[in-house]
Design a protein around this nucleic acid. Sequence first.
RNA 1: GCCCGAGUAGCUCAGCUGGUCAGAGCAACCGCCUUGUAAGCGGUAGGUCGUGGGUUCGACUCCCACCUCGGGCUCCA
Length: 648
Amino acid sequence: MADHITITLPDDSTRELPTGATAADLAAAIGKRLAADALVAEVDGSLVDLSTPLEDGARVAIVTPTTDDGREVLRHSTSHVLAQAVLALFPGAKFAIGPAIENGFYYDFELPDGRTFSEDDLASIEAKMREIIAEDQAFVRSECAMDEGLAVFADQPYKREIIEKVDASEVAGDGTVSLYRNSDGFVDLCRGPHVPSTGRLGSFALQKVAGAYWRGNEKGPMLQRIYGTAWESDKALKAHLHQLEEAAKRDHRKLGVELDLFSFPDEVGSGLAVFHPKGGIVRRIMEDYSRQRHEQAGYEFVYSPHITKANLFETSGHLDWYADGMYPPMELDGGTDYYLKPMNCPFHILIYRSRQRSYRDLPLRLFEFGTVYRYEKSGVVHGLTRARGFSQDDAHIFCTKEQAADELGRALDFVLDLLRDYGLDDFYVELSTKPAEKAVGSDEEWDEAIEVLRQVALAKEMELVLDEGGGAFYGPKISVQARDAIGRTWQMSTIQLDFQLPQRFDLEYIGPDGDRHPPVMIHRALFGSVERFFAVLLEHYAGAFPAWLAPVQVRVLPVRDDHDVYAARLVDRFAAEGFRADLVRADEPLGARIRKAKLDKLPYVLVVGDEDVEQGTVGVNPRGGEVERGVTVDDFVDRLAAEVLAHT
RNA sequence: GCCCGAGUAGCUCAGCUGGUCAGAGCAACCGCCUUGUAAGCGGUAGGUCGUGGGUUCGACUCCCACCUCGGGCUCCA
């Protein structure tokens, strides 16, 4: 046996180490700083503990906390400390699984006698975790045979189940399982790797308690899950918690109440919103602008009813594939079932089919703000973003097969262009393929359609992400994902190619050759749901809508009663110019009225006093800007008009 | 749908183990104040404590059911 081994580093340089050297030795050999930062190592593509002896010829990278892999290990190890703390504080607790997840980790437990965790428990658990971390306990890996593992976890049914069900191939095919022990006797079943010792952890916070099914199975036992977040430094942790606070402040459900935009009256039912006047203004402008752009882009507007006989959705296939998502039928006219519509497409198809179509009619682009109703499971309803009744800005483009690629490209351009006009400008595109279970049509048809969509997306040179099995039952789709002001991504517009529905409804057109041909159908929604898009914009802007969308654009505040007449004349002038302006009289001090206007997030507050009445000016207090005195009214009107026109 | 948590005036919330616990601030309304850029002063009104049952001499407080809201229910030790 040679007395040394050769290791290749990520930069392709090599290093000689004594035989038997571990990943930790390698880190130490490279540098003090790296040795101190090292959490685990990546050896030939897989992550291992630092204590792992290296093989000659291995390609090794030392993983530090500020990498994705590093954070994942930190989070995973922190979840172990969570389990250790819970087992110490709650004798008899059973522990199940505790992986790292995006931004954090969780661990599932079952407490004796059906006990549950409360928020107060989190504080004591967190304190115990900090003790364990302060003790700097080593994570010591060992391996043992499966039956030995079963013995170690004699009173831990979930761990036993994991061992029993573990696929032999996943434990290196040798029937062993790996364990990690900490110094006070805590032992967990874990594939690893872990940080060398608990002292490497600490920038974490426990967040919430939730129920979760064992193995995600609704029929299985319900466990108590504790969620936490963990980071490489207190600074990163703080930044993450701050981001969460920011998101909470922007929550559209909260802003909807504060700004008097919409509500969900209990009397109406879960997931069913009503829009108040201020929300109504924003929504109407959103819709009007959309209509205007659709008209310019060659769409024709149609309308369809909210309910229809079952027959229509039988033909479309919705009742076969989608019945769970539909409201139950109403039986009318002596035995005929009527359904609330969950989608608009079948109606648009009937409009297409209402007369014989020629290739000269194509592409036919039908557009509707169609309100649909979907019976979402009660646990998934969420504000305006997941509602049971909502309006789609739904369009269906009927065209020849040859026109499809061009129409898809135009639709994608149109969608991106319009999203930018609403203030979103950071996108990527997702391509969703055939669902594993619910799908109609042959694989060949799907592959062909997917290929067309892929080409269209590639032509736009946009970042493309594959979403396996995420398509609708009738066809694949491209969806545009937008990142908002604080970096969250939202699925926005979808463009779906559909060969199925035209077949099911026997659609046809007469081609130049005089023969009948099946058209292709493109489903396309930009907002997806007007309500949801409203929520996204509300959160994106944190309630501070740009002037063109703001419910009130200008508030005029007279300094004293005797400036009322002048102020009222200004409001009239603004109204005449097509702006939304109001006036708040001097019943309260100016400072108080300014404050209220600011809390209402109005784009402009105008203060008018003696000087302004004399000179025909206003004092302009713009949202997020400096106060400017003595601006002429004409000047202000020009500025606001320009701003509204430019959609900024 | 299932689990956990929550539901007290329009909003935000206080109210310990059942017995003056039905309260505060903001908002609303009425006065006074007449004000130059983020909270002037005083007063009034407002809740069958989510709904319906039950236990009890007595329930916002305990039990059951239902409704609504929030978080979670894929990420394999």
